[in-house]
Nucleic acid binder design. Structure first.
Length: 431
RNA sequence: CGGAACGUGGCGCAGUCUGGCAGCGCAUCUGCUUUGGGAGCAGAGGGUCGCCCGUUCAAAUCGGGCCGUUCCGACCA
């Protein structure tokens, strides 16, 4: 991508509408804009970050045996009446009527739709388990949307559903997904914790939340200092003692980015999702559902990784792997070299943002830091004369120089160093 | 929904208390100079002061209503 032909409207100052750092930085970095309360436009760079997160999720879902599908945003009220949630979901469910006066809603989640579909197709235990997921836009008419992408009304979510023939199978599906979530968040490079949680209005028998640790989080997590117990405080009556071993506990704030539920029979019973077992007896499918807040991950990653100059994206989330600054676009020798590097980096399969704009160096340095690309390369008359390209690791702040005569191998070595710097962050958590 | 604040060129803000020419910084356009951490000088363009009603000779400013945005609370896969 050439910066000069990209739509990246960066801002020097934070708009007054933003209060928390991720919201401010996403606006300043030209990654999103608000359309109305709790509803945002993802600009090209913000969408690239969403795509990067989605890519990791898709790989791990596939590895866990889940297939992708895409369900509709508009849903008929009938299904929600059948599950009982038309009554119980409350005003968060945005309801409306179509031209024929039929009641509809915008999908805040998809248990009803997928259960309806599966019950219509699956008749035999031989067809189970069914494991499906989608990455889709959800709408929840939140009482108070806030903090930008952290709690929007419209947001992007990965939701997965499993249907099993028996309890052992269902527990296996749950376990497989729990492990997949651990791998996803580890790969994304964010410090997180899996905790026991309340099931809320979705129902079911038990659940775990995946929390990104950040002081600005809306949730409070209890950690036991003695054993490995960790839970959302909602779940613990005496927040001063570990309910498992009685040991001392500590509290930390977190942002919920994932939630896995053992649903049991809640939906299959209400909507009669049944199959015939090997003895010809009718039985209900045992369900699980598993969500990841894709757009919220972007906000959470920024809450956790930023400094005074801007975003410090973990490599797996960054909209670009590398930003290449041409400080002297009028200097033919520098530009020739910059074009050459730009081509070489793309040849290595990297996502590169090439800053070829006719701007002063200071503007380019500021934008590079603000945008949060993990690797910065700087080329100017000074560095070209010395046969090097300067490099900066956005995360560690370390600067260096790579030889232009042996650029490819010098760059790959440096990239490994940059990646290792993130390895320590993710090893430190997420058991 | 309860409490609070805010709404003035694209962005950030002053002006409102005490009514009297709509301002500042950034951004934009033109010219010259500059060119390694958000350049300097000179000039230019751009605003129904959120909307409606009222008070007044006169309203960004005072009063009422509405809309929108944000924060705290309640709420929430």
């Amino acid at each position: 991508m050439r910066f000069s032909s990209c739509y990246i409207p960066t801002l020097k100052e934070s708009p007054a509408e933003a209060e928390v750092v991720s919201h401010k930085l996403l606006l300043r970095a030209g990654m999103m804009r608000r359309l109305t309360s709790g509803v945002y436009i993802y600009l090209p760079l913000g969408l690239k970050a969403i795509d990067k997160v989605s890519k990791v999720i898709r790989e791990e879902m596939r590895a866990a045996g889940f297939q992708e599908l895409l369900m509709p945003m508009v849903q008929p009220a009938d299904l929600w009446k059948e599950s009982g949630r038309w009554e119980h979901y409350g005003k968060e469910l945005l309801r409306f009527k179509d031209r024929n006066d039929r009641e509809c809603c915008l999908g805040p989640t998809h248990e009803e739709v997928i259960t309806d579909m599966v019950r219509g197709e699956v008749r035999s235990y031989r067809q189970l388990p069914v494991r499906l997921y989608q990455i889709q836009t959800k709408f929840r008419d939140e009482i108070r949307p806030r903090f930008g992408l952290m709690r929007g009304r419209e947001f992007i979510m990965k939701d997965a559903y499993s249907f099993d023939a028996d309890a052992a199978g269902a527990e296996h599906s749950y376990k497989v997904m729990h492990e997949a979530y651990n791998r996803i968040f580890r790969r994304l490079g964010i410090a997180f914790k899996s905790v026991e949680a309340d099931n809320g209005s979705i129902g079911g028998s038990f659940s775990h939340e995946f929390m990104v640790l950040a002081d600005t989080g809306e949730d409070m997590i209890v950690f036991c200092n003695e054993c490995d117990f960790a839970a959302n405080v909602e779940l613990v009556q005496d927040a001063g003692r570990c309910p498992r071993c009685g040991g001392d506990v500590s509290l930390k704030r977190g942002i919920e980015v994932g939630h896995v539920f053992m649903l049991g029979l809640k939906y299959s019973e209400a909507m009669h999702a049944a199959f015939l077992d090997e003895n010809g007896h009718e039985r209900l499918m045992i369900m699980g559902c598993y969500g990841i807040g894709v757009s919220r991950i972007i906000a959470a990653a920024i809450e956790q990784n930023h400094d005074a100059d801007g975003i410090v994206f973990p490599p797996a989330i960054a909209p670009m792997d590398c930003i290449l600054l041409n400080l002297d676009p009028h200097n033919a020798a520098v530009t020739e070299k910059a074009e050459e590097l730009y081509g070489a980096l793309r040849g290595m399969g990297l996502d590169v943002l090439y800053d070829d704009r006719e701007e002063r160096p200071g503007v380019k340095f500021k934008d590079a830091d603000l945008l949060g690309a993990p690797m910065q390369l700087v080329l100017g008359a000074r560095s070209v004369a010395g046969r090097v390209v300067e490099c900066k690791d956005r995360h560690s702040g370390e600067k260096g120089a790579l030889s232009l005569d042996d650029f490819a191998s010098a760059f790959l070595n440096w990239r490994d160093n940059v990646r290792e710097g993130w390895g320590h962050v993710t090893e430190a958590c997420g058991k």
